[in-house]
Simulated scan of single mutants.
Amino acid sequence: MKLSSLPLLLLILCCTERLSAQENQGFRNAPKVINDPGNFYKYAEHSRKFSGIPSITVTSKGTLWATWYAGMTSGEDANNYVVLAYSKDQGLTWKEILVVDPDEKGPVRAYDPEIWIDPTGKIWLFWAQTIGLEGTVAGVWSMTADDPDSENPLWTSAKRISDGIMMCKPTVLSTGEWLLPVSTWRLTDESAKVVVSTDQGVNWAVKGACNVPKADREFDEHMLVERKDGSLWMLLRTRYGIAESFSIDKGKSWSAAKPSALVHTSSRFFIRRLNSGNLLLIKHGPIAVKTGRSHLMAFISKDDGKTWSKGLLIDERMGISYPDAQQAADGRIYLTYDYNRTLDQQIIMTVFTEGDVLSKDYDECIVKVFKERKIISKQ
């Protein structure tokens, strides 16, 4: 997804798609939600030519949920739809329960989904809808269910939250505010936005935004961490790798995006605070090494990102990308990522702990992570 290409060509394509979307407002219409998608050829696993960009979460009772987007053609196009699945046996088997498809063969695509369980125990499915590949005219949508451990959760109707695209998990602040990292991508200033809810997701509004210099803009895919001193730390995807920005007023204002000390390819990474209070970072390659989309590794920081542990190798293969994770109450960290989106089309998960990352028995822990690897979906 979203590999860098010639800037001029991208600009021409994005401008064309933006005009098309402005003329056709179908991306603002509520999508179709199809239950039991395996009963329909278009949505069956064997009919897919593209699968990738996953997200994962786990309930307090151990039910695993995963989402990703797919399509009958091998690209990011009008055929894209969002898949939602769950597992009751720690990822050994998965059941696809629904897909979100805006207009079937029409021009609107559904993509970049995220799954999240909020502090009240409610599960949220987020995704984006637009025409083409331009984020400026996209919109973030969501559905929720109150009982994520049910065999057949009752989902609310789809609701459009804001303009833009939300690629990464929400963050709950010490103030009780919920923050969504929403981006309008390359054609807008202050594209890396923070959308806030103060009423547990009933209403949402833009609170602030970080500006990425034009020459560096890519897809943002920013993530937010509340540091122990109360400030907010934003990490963003840029053309050169990972940039950072800071806010000392809970997200109203942000410093200009500048290169971070985390060397990376232009691809999604993952950062999250763990139950211990330490930070988990999942990225490609060692902290100061750029490897391309290979060598996915996990790191721990005990000092709010100033220093990082030695990395635990998760998967060394070329063609892996887009990590997303969730820690359970028992300390297990569930990680998902994709592999070869148009060939193998694998959506993968594995499990490890903070102790595994920090362990001196490095080789043993690598083998453990490899043995924990399970397939959520594949061609």
Rank of each mutant, 00 (worst) to 15 (best):
A85H: 04
P119R: 15
S174Q: 07
S142P: 03
F126C: 00
W94V: 14
W124P: 02
I131M: 03
Q90V: 04
P153I: 10
D101V: 13
A158P: 15
Q200M: 06
V182H: 05
D101P: 14
M167H: 15
P119T: 09
T136W: 01
D89M: 04
V82T: 15
N203Y: 05
E104H: 14
D103T: 11
D189W: 00
T156W: 00
D146H: 07
A110I: 00
K88M: 08
W141F: 15
Y81A: 13
K95V: 08
K105I: 09
T184D: 04
D147A: 08
L173W: 11
V195A: 00
P181G: 08
E114T: 06
W124M: 01
I123P: 01
A192S: 13
P148R: 13
T175R: 06
S197Q: 12
W127P: 05
V182R: 00
W116Y: 15
V82E: 09
V99P: 12
I131F: 11
T136N: 15
D101Q: 12
D199Q: 00
G132N: 02
V202M: 09
D101M: 04
D103S: 13
L84P: 00
E134L: 04
E134A: 07
T171P: 08
E114V: 15
P148T: 12
D146R: 07
K159E: 12
D118K: 02
N152D: 13
T198L: 10
A145D: 02
S183M: 01
D89Y: 09
G139A: 05
W127Y: 11
A205R: 13
A158K: 01
T130G: 12
D163G: 11
I161T: 08
Y111V: 10
T156A: 01
A128K: 11
I131W: 07
P170D: 07
V82Y: 00
Y81D: 05
M167Q: 07
W204C: 08
L180W: 06
D112N: 15
S142G: 01
N152W: 07
V100C: 03
G135V: 11
L84N: 12
P148C: 11
A192N: 02
F126N: 04
V182N: 05
L84C: 04
W94K: 10
M143Y: 01
G139F: 06
T184W: 05
Q90I: 05
T198D: 11
R160D: 02
C168W: 02
E96D: 13
A145C: 03
S174V: 09
V196E: 14
R160L: 07
A145N: 00
A192L: 02
G132C: 01
G132K: 10
Q200I: 10
D146Q: 03
M143Q: 14
S87F: 14
T175E: 08
L173I: 12
V108Y: 06
